[in-house]
Design a protein around this nucleic acid. Structure first.
Lengths: 230, 230
DNA sequence: CGAGCTGTTGACGATTTTCAAATTTAGTGG
DNA sequence: CCACTAAATTTGAAAATCGTCAACAGCTCG
């Protein structure tokens, strides 16, 4: 819980595949304003960029207790030199990450609070579905409203109010870490959500075996003990 | 001028390296709201993502008259299969693009209008400097205030007002497409600008010869006539 | 129990948007 | 070069969205 997968200004020695739990990459402003720029869910690779960044730009922290598979950067790189398929997969991960960032630049720049929240919920369920979690319209969303605010570029107070509205309009139910989407079509319509930007970004997972339905494990694992790439 | 390098829903057959002029990638909302998610300047590769996207998500349009070098996607891909250095360069481009997107998600989510504009100006001059254009504190900025607004997530009216303020505070001069930064240190301070997210993204250029100081050429070039990769 | 975190609510304020109109600038054809 | 037109910028006034501040309730956890 709230442990770091990477701190800024450091060189990352390992990548992580999320097996269970949520992590977030963020950036801080001098006065404490925080923007979360990405959530990492089960199956996500965190973060391919570290392989070519000399130093980590944005820290990544666990939002929940977290279980990951850690992969040594040097090993990945040397293996990728010999295996074009792996390198292509890494490249594909970067591309998918950039597409997602791009979509959220759009959301943050041009959408209202309600649209952003609606979009977030649509995206989360869509991403979880491809990872074989969640029953489509409801899922675990183990985030505080502060976290949601920091991702959507709003304040916690405004998130609270907007969620209240969305609840009373029969769009969603959301309490104690569980999200239920009452009206999927309407939510997607309001969010202008299209999943066309979520393509790809799964090639790398073929190289690693991800435990099927893991129990929750106490969080950060010892770095330095890496499983073999397949 | 205002020609498309790529339209959405289509498959891109070529990438482009900008030699002269500005291009922008953007996304539209149903009611006309537009967010520009990236500017492409001299030397930028537009867009490596197309190599692995089945279909273009965000269109790219020329903001000025534009001269580019077009590169056939199939040729790049088949060449990359044989040349790990090229593939690494492409991957590095994707990574750099994602880093930039990330920074702007941060800017759009958490910075004020003035901070965003200040950041934009800092970033542009920083990027142009690495491309051997501009004298550091002044440069061509051939954008309308509407364009700037669409990139910074503001309205043209508010951009106009904020620029006026920044001018009267002696931070910048900006008129008829020319930007002069009067107080570089103060502008960077206000923007909380650090160029740590701008690393890399130049590896690919080593594979292509970019004309030195080209004259302005009438814009879009015939697609299908591609120069050789070096 | 008490500290602390999270979420909720109200009142108020600031930033930014919207709408409308005036003014300047740029582009075009004569 | 000038006149005309369209586009871009500026300005003002009013409104909307969203943020800030403060208080309170519920909850967890030691």
């Amino acid at each position: 819980m709230h442990e770091y997968l990477a701190r800024p200004q450091q060189h990352a020695s390992a990548l992580h595949i999320v097996v269970e739990g949520w992590a977030a990459r963020y950036k801080l402003l001098f006065d404490g304003r925080r923007q979360i720029t990405r959530f990492y869910l089960r199956g996500d690779l965190c973060d391919p960029a570290w392989l070519s960044q000399s130093t980590v730009v944005q820290p990544v922290v666990a939002m929940t207790s977290l279980q990951t598979i850690s992969l040594n950067c040097d090993e990945i790189l040397s293996r990728a030199d010999r295996d074009p398929l792996l390198m292509t997969a890494l490249w594909e991960e970067s591309r998918a990450a950039a597409d997602m960032q791009s979509e959220w630049a759009f959301n943050l720049g041009r959408k209202t609070a309600r649209e952003r929240l609606a979009h977030l919920f649509c995206e989360i369920t869509a991403r979880l579905e491809t990872r074989e979690i969640s029953g489509g319209t409801n899922c675990e969303l183990p985030l505080s409203q502060k976290d949601i605010a920091d991702f959507t570029g709003l304040t916690p107070v405004h998130v609270s109010r907007t969620l209240k509205e969305m609840r009373s309009d029969g769009l969603i139910e959301f309490q104690s870490g569980t999200l239920k989407i009452a009206d999927v079509r309407e939510l997607a319509r309001e969010a202008s959500f299209k999943n066309d930007y979520l393509g790809g970004g799964s090639a790398f997972r073929d190289f690693v075996q991800i435990p099927a339905t893991p129990g929750i494990t106490p969080a950060s694992r010892p770095v330095g003990n890496y499983p073999r790439l397949r």
